[in-house]
Design a protein around this nucleic acid. Structure first.
Length: 904
RNA sequence: GGUCGGAUGGCGCAGCGGGAGCGCAGGUGCCUUACAAGCACAAGGUCGGGGGUUCAAAUCCCUCUCCGACCACCA
């Protein structure tokens, strides 16, 4: 990396103005460090060290689809995981971040279909085997894209051991679980109404259906009675889907509906098809809605299906798999569902049976993949009976064996499981895990099997395997353990023994049920253990307009472009800055930009430290001055606070702590304090101490920043003279809050706070009167005896930062006539501005300040004279308020004295 | 219909029982030898409305208004 070091400085792009800025060209800097970490083996199973040596810390990445490209959701989620795993690695845990991709059944099949169609190839023409080959080829060509993008982010996953949900190891696990559950009666086959996508020609699960409100109509259709009842010769049903009447096998009324009680048991002649169907009563019907008559189509509506089951109705399927009307329906046969709707309505109209039409907004199910309108369709499918699985999954969360961050997601999880219905797992696709069911058509034998069964064990005939594949989530639910050798040795697999259960799972809220809950169910059943201890539900990244990012809205942001523009570090820090407990975060370029600026600030601060190392001799840091003790104390607080925030996964808080320490304390003050010491060649011992302390604080800060900004911190670390944390920062020990606690020093903090106050007072005076910072000023500071001692000891800092000529610090100073005053807590700072003071303006300023002080005083006095407060408030609160009041009163008195002296 | 989240300076957000903060924008002055992607100094808020609990409420409770999410869903 040595050659990188020199180039980084020469690479600075000169500004048009000729300013000496040092810009940082991210893209050129990041990749080499990534390769170096990889080559040094940090991405693979970590050995661990220190007190956590024997503890594992594993994360499984939510496997991105092989069809996917990195989007903002990944960028955020992968940053969170990398921050966690990098910190754990530095803390000495045995870390492992398992990387892999998901075969993504429907998504991939759709993409490959489209890809083939462009070449004029139809899936059905080339057949199943050839199509799967095409999918494999597609995966090899495009499936690496997202992994490369994850690498560009700097994610420290185990790239050498990449997993795939259709690898031989994984496929075996899928077959094992299917077979096991089949034999346990958890998986069963049934003819049910499922959500059918006529475009993907497959069933999808209930969770995969998306509801959208649409403008529609309610058609009122007349169905003639076979025999008139009390002069009535027809009834009227209301429907949003008139075309399904072709499959009607009954008409239902509410049992409470006395209007039609005498019609129950009568028969209706279904128009167009002339089918005789019964009128019956069923509790499902709401007599208030529509006409009170419900047409019942058991094959095309789940509620009608249930009614059909209850009343033994025939289930007539009128659609084929592409939602075209099947043969046997005359002119309607062959029409698609929309044509059929129009034709049916027209036919009713022609026959005078169309009563009337109303507008109705209703929600319609759409395929989450292709967004086609879903068709409730009767078909043979495989299901998972969830009741047997959900008990344990509920229990471990109810008992907090698994913790959610933020905690409110716990109830979302529990609610989802409580309402869970059986899960349709069969998909009529080619790309996916083929269901390991084997059938003998000769003797009717059938069984599930992990290994293929070619001939029937009963009669010896050739078997055939089920044509369907499994829902992608069926394999995804096995991800935390099937990636760790479970299919070879179960719980005895070395990785399972060492790295399972995993530590944290980080994901978006939208797959809480689809994935998170199912992983828990599967893991509890298959391994008897929870799959992870903590679940982070991060906010959803929205567009700048607060709406979900989408192509049609044009509010999307490409993380790859962000990394180009702001660097991976800038993007990572900027994203984490926005992570709060909220359910959504509005993407904010300004945060990314300020993070990029922060990265630049870090680079420049490091440059300052590293360019002032002449005469440096390695050695232990030692805080010798109050400034040293102050920054060490601040650092000790910082580490403890960062630990607390990190442990609670409060990433926004972590970034804020790091940002303000590094920028507002280390750069704004400590580095400024150091300048005079570094320039003073007369005291080489102090200069050396200063160098060592600068290096120590910088290095500690780099370690704290590294999990979030891995590249720039590593780059700087490589340029440092001592590598106290080992050859690479990625493997350096995480700062130990307990060890640093000894540096906490309240006296030093008070001392430097005073210095800052005086310096700020001088700067403020300058600014108000337009006095250049280069013009040295006479300054008189009045303080109590104790503070005089503290300030006297630091007068050098005040002189250099405030640029003072004469600096007098005493318990009583005589104020120069042409000076202005600034009142601090317990101190008064007089800045001599010979001839420049606008006394009227000063008087106005003092008056304003006085008014504010007086108001604050009054509030506090009232509070402190309140007996209830004195009796019930915590003693330390009372003491604090008393001290505050004393300070305010003191200030008020002094301000009044100032006014007198000024003669106002 | 059910559940949950949000409303804080111009914008985006943090804070969630005891002195209103951050980033960005805007203002003034600075090429101060690490950094103009910067430095310094100012300015800006009765914390959505109403009620309650408390010695004390931006923070807890109730209610209203307005946004947002998820679940369920009527033919």
């Amino acid at each position: 990396m040595a050659e990188k070091k020199s180039s980084s400085e020469s690479k600075s792009q000169p500004q048009a103005s000729g300013a000496k800025s040092v810009d940082y060209d991210f893209s050129a800097h990041e990749r080499p460090f990534f390769e170096a970490w990889k080559d040094a083996g940090y991405f693979q199973r970590g050995e661990g060290f220190g007190k956590h040596k024997d503890d594992s810390y594993t994360i499984v990445i939510p496997p991105p689809n092989i069809t996917g490209v990195l989007h903002m959701g990944h960028a955020l989620n992968d940053t969170i995981q990398d921050a966690c795993i990098r910190r754990a690695r530095m803390q000495g845990y045995q870390t492992r971040w398992i990387l892999g991709t998901d075969h993504a059944g429907i998504a991939t099949q759709t993409k490959v279909d489209k890809h083939l169609a462009e070449q004029g190839i139809n899936r059905r023409e080339i057949g199943r085997e050839k199509f799967i080959e095409a999918c494999q080829e597609w995966r090899e060509e495009y499936g690496t894209t997202i992994v490369n993008q994850i690498a560009a982010m700097g994610c420290s996953c185990d790239y050498a051991d990449e997993k795939f949900t259709m690898s031989p190891e994984f496929s075996k696990a899928v077959r094992m679980v299917f077979t096991d559950w089949y034999h346990a009666g958890i998986i069963y086959r049934g003819k049910r109404i499922v959500n059918w996508c006529p475009s993907c020609t497959t069933a999808i699960a209930d969770d995969e259906a998306e509801y959208q409100d649409e403008h529609g109509h309610l058609w009122y259709l007349r169905y003639p009675l076979k025999e008139p009842v009390d002069g009535r010769d027809y009834i009227t049903v209301a429907t949003t889907r008139p075309e399904t009447m072709l499959g009607d096998t009954g008409v239902a009324v509410s049992p409470q509906d006395e209007r039609y009680a005498d019609l129950v048991g009568k028969t209706v002649i279904l128009p167009l098809v002339n089918r005789e169907i019964p009128i019956f009563s069923d509790f499902y019907v709401d007599k208030e809605f529509g006409t009170g008559f419900v047409k019942v189509t058991p094959a095309h509506d789940p509620n009608d299906f249930a009614m059909g089951e209850r009343h033994g109705l025939e289930k007539i399927n009128i659609f084929d798999e592409t939602a075209h009307v099947v043969d046997g329906f005359g002119k309607f046969s062959g029409m698609d569902r929309d044509e059929a709707r129009e034709a049916v309505v027209a036919a009713f109209d022609e026959l005078g049976l169309l009563d009337h039409v109303e507008d109705l907004d209703h929600s319609v199910m759409h395929c989450y993949r292709c967004h086609s309108t879903l068709e409730p369709w009767l078909s043979e499918q495989w299901f998972v009976a969830v009741d047997a699985l959900k008990e344990d999954a509920l229990k471990v969360v109810e008992e907090d064996k698994i913790t959610f961050y933020p905690p409110r997601w716990k109830s979302v999880y529990l609610d989802w499981l409580h309402n869970l219905k059986d899960w349709c797992i069969s998909r009529q696709l080619w790309w996916g895990h083929r269901i390991p069911m084997y059938y003998c058509d000769a003797c009717g034998w059938q069984d599930a099997s992990v290994e293929p069964i070619a001939t029937c064990p009963t009669c010896g005939h050739a078997t055939r395997q089920d044509e369907d594949v499994l829902d992608t989530w069926f394999s995804s639910q096995l991800w935390p353990f099937a990636t760790q050798g479970w299919s070879e040795a179960g719980n005895e697999a070395p990785d399972i023994k060492r790295y399972y259960p995993t530590e944290v799972l980080s994901t978006a809220r939208d797959i809480m049920g689809l994935w998170v809950a199912r992983m828990v169910m599967a893991s509890m059943y298959c391994t008897g253990e929870i799959p992870f201890e903590k679940v982070i539900i991060h906010p959803t990244v929205m567009g700048a307009d607060g709406k979900p990012m989408s192509k049609s809205r044009g509010n999307g942001v490409d993380p790859v472009q962000l990394m180009k523009d702001y660097g991976a570090d800038g993007m990572r820090f900027g994203l984490l800055m926005q992570v709060t407990g909220a359910q959504a975060m509005r993407f904010d370029y300004q945060k990314i930009e300020s993070s990029r600026n922060f990265a630049n600030k870090i680079r420049n601060a490091a440059r300052f430290v590293l360019m002032h190392l002449d005469g440096y001799i390695p050695g232990a840091p030692e805080p010798t001055t109050p400034a040293d003790r102050w920054i060490f104390s601040r650092l000790a607080h910082l580490v403890a606070q960062v630990d607390t925030a990190f442990d609670a996964f409060e990433f926004g808080e972590v970034t804020r702590l790091l940002y303000s320490f590094f920028w507002n304390e280390f750069c704004d003050w400590y580095i400024e304090f150091s300048k005079s010491r570094l320039a003073n060649e007369d005291d080489p011992a102090d200069k050396l101490a200063c160098q060592r302390n600068l290096l120590f604080v910088l290095e500690t800060a780099l370690r704290l920043l590294h999990p979030i900004m891995p590249f720039i911190t590593e780059e700087i670390y490589q340029e440092m003279p001592d590598k106290n944390g080992g050859p690479w920062l990625i493997g350096a020990p995480w700062p130990d809050a307990d060890a640093l606690r000894a540096y906490i020093d309240n006296d030093a903090e008070r001392s430097i706070d005073l210095v800052c106050e005086v310096v700020s007072a001088i700067r403020s005076a300058r600014s108000r009167y337009g006095v250049s910072p280069r013009e040295a000023l006479n300054v008189f500071v009045q303080a109590d005896a104790q503070d005089v001692v503290l300030l006297e000891a630091q007068s050098g800092l005040i002189t250099s930062l405030g640029n003072t000529a004469d600096l007098v610090i005493a318990e009583e100073v005589s104020r120069p006539a042409q000076s202005i005053v600034s009142l601090g807590s317990g101190i008064e700072v007089y800045t001599d501005l010979a001839g420049k003071v606008d006394f009227e303006a000063e008087a106005a300023r003092l008056e304003k300040e006085k008014a504010k002080l007086a108001a604050d005083c009054q509030k506090l006095e009232k509070k402190l004279s309140n007996e209830g407060f004195l009796a019930k408030a915590a003693p330390e609160i009372i003491a604090k308020d008393r001290a505050r009041l004393a300070d305010l009163q003191d200030k008020l008195e002094r301000i009044e004295r100032q006014q007198e002296e000024l003669g106002f």
